[in-house]
């Protein structure tokens, strides 16, 4: 058929086809609407930034962020005088940082490394039947919360640095964290250095993470207001890796057997407990409790329970005093 260019029927056929097409065109021109073109919808968290500012702030080394106050001979009695009440204390925590401070969705109990550190301190300070008010807060609220008397102390993955020392008092370092990388197990990525320029790394906004990432890899940092969004974006394949404090990454890795924490830490994030500026007595007392916990194995027990399974063995960070 195809080899015969002009059959007996070709002219009438063309005519019929032509008019049918015309008719079709006329009809569809009136009634039909062109099929809509729709992009594949990608759910994104509000406030995601694919090109965050990664300018590195001048490292502030005007102080030694690890140096806190020597416990000396301060007693629990003296420390309690700093509180509003003898048997009641308010602690600023996170309820949404898995493994560190979070509320178990099933039991509704507060659990985690930060929580147990705080509980151990409170037991020393106020006894076992102390009334505790756990005040959930965002990381941005932490400094105001202690200074406005909303809470007596904050135990919430808070990195000690010279800028924060200006506004609050810190305890000695109770956990030595660092920024690491969370990737899918089958991605074959061993460390941050292996990431390429067309890969993306998700991290929380308003932290030093984006510039820390930029310092060790060519990959593009992507920031979100809540770092938990990073895990969802990694699971959805929107980003290639997540980078933030290893403690937080461990809390993510435990929720998904197909992802893992890799590489060496590429930043120092010494965690400290924050107190109201000027409230050195409470800081001194807590440093004393921390020193006991380091030596009598309580710190080790808490670490082994919450973080060791994901981050490996570790020993308590040494205390450092400024006076």
């Amino acid at each position: 058929m195809m080899n015969r260019p002009r059959s007996r029927w070709s002219a009438p056929l063309a005519l019929v086809t032509g008019s049918a097409l015309l008719l079709l065109a006329a009809c569809s021109g009136q009634a039909g609407i062109d099929p809509a073109e729709v992009d594949v919808p990608t759910p994104l968290p509000e406030g995601i930034n694919f090109e965050p500012d990664i300018s590195t702030a001048e490292a502030d080394d005007s102080c030694d962020p690890l140096a806190s106050y020597d416990p000396g001979s301060i007693t629990a009695e003296q420390a309690r005088e700093q509180l509003d009440s003898d048997d009641h204390i308010s602690i600023g925590i996170s309820q949404s940082t898995n493994l560190m401070g979070y509320r178990d969705p099933v039991t509704n109990q507060l659990e985690g490394f930060d929580i147990e550190i705080a509980e151990a301190i409170i037991t020393e300070l106020l006894g076992a039947d102390a009334q505790i008010t756990w005040v959930p807060m965002t990381s941005r609220e932490r400094e105001d919360a202690v200074n406005n008397d909303r809470v007596d102390m904050v135990v919430r993955t808070m990195t000690m640095n010279c800028g924060r020392w200006e506004n609050v008092e810190f305890s000695t370092e109770y956990y030595s964290a660092g920024q690491r990388l969370l990737v899918p197990k089958d991605a074959g990525i061993e460390s941050a250095e292996e990431l390429t320029a067309d890969q993306t790394v998700c991290t929380g906004e308003s932290s030093t993470s984006p510039s820390n990432i930029a310092a060790v890899t060519e990959a593009q940092p992507v920031t979100v207001p809540d770092f938990n969004d990073c895990l969802v974006l990694l699971q959805q394949g929107t980003v290639d890796a997540v980078s933030t404090d290893e403690t937080i990454l461990a809390g993510m890795a435990i929720q998904d057997p197909t992802i893992e924490v890799v590489g060496e830490p590429f930043s120092d994030e010494p965690y400290g407990i924050a107190f109201q500026k000027g409230n050195t007595d409470l800081a001194r007392y807590v440093n004393g409790v921390l020193a006991d916990m380091r030596s009598d194995g309580r710190w080790q027990d808490i670490y082994d329970k919450w973080l060791a399974p994901r981050l490996g063995d570790a020993t308590p960070p040494a205390a450092k005093y400024q006076d």
Partner: peptide, 24 residues
């Protein structure tokens, strides 16, 4: 599903669902 498993990331999925609903 995550909520049933007791994994806190479920909250983030629920939040993302609501964001999709509200903004898109």
């Amino acid at each position: 599903s995550y909520n049933r498993l007791g994994e806190p990331i479920g909250a983030t999925y629920q939040k993302q669902a609501s964001t999709l609903m509200r903004t898109e």
